[in-house]
């Protein structure tokens, strides 16, 4: 038996939500005077994003990014930007934790995942181990950005 190609179903991976978000230009721009910027890179496959965030009175007003990468990494970044705008930093941190929890299959309750919105599209990415790091890149990068503002 050869593994790898069997557990995955491309129909489940390249859904409309993901392919459309991967091309979305909504958050793809350079933010002027961002509160914080952070670069996130997957050296093995070349996903490379530059995230910039505007935070005022602890509220995330804008999330923008530039860079390039596979459809999964780009869609995940776009979806995350959508979700995070308007949230407090603490809420955002909680959602990052929940997203990573979902990927790791620690959080599986559908109701619990509702607040992740479109990001729930990545629920089964762990069936495709080679692509997990693409899906989580922007979320880890945002968390690092928050840590940078703290220090």
């Amino acid at each position: 038996m050869q593994g790898g190609g069997l557990a995955l179903d491309l129909n489940e991976l390249y859904t409309e939500i993901i392919t459309e978000h991967s091309r979305s230009q909504k958050h793809r721009y350079l933010l002027e005077n961002p509160s914080v910027t952070m670069r996130g890179v997957n050296p093995s496959c070349g996903d490379d994003i530059n995230l910039s965030v505007n935070i005022k009175d602890n509220i995330i007003n804008q999330v923008a990014f530039t860079g390039e990468g596979c459809a999964i990494s780009q869609a995940s970044t776009s979806i995350m930007a959508d979700i995070m705008e308007g949230k407090t930093v603490d809420e955002a941190r909680r959602l990052i934790k929940k997203f990573i929890g979902m990927i790791k299959k620690d959080v599986t309750d559908e109701k619990d995942l509702e607040e992740l919105g479109d990001a729930a599209a990545f629920e089964n990415i762990s069936n495709m181990p080679a692509r997990v790091k693409c899906a989580v890149l922007s979320w880890h990068t945002l968390e690092e950005a928050f840590n940078k503002t703290k220090s």
Partner: peptide, 14 residues
């Protein structure tokens, strides 16, 4: 189509 996506698509065909 990013090369990483191409590799995933090819992998589905083994």
């Amino acid at each position: 189509v990013h090369p990483h996506d191409i590799a995933t698509i090819l992998n589905a065909d083994n």
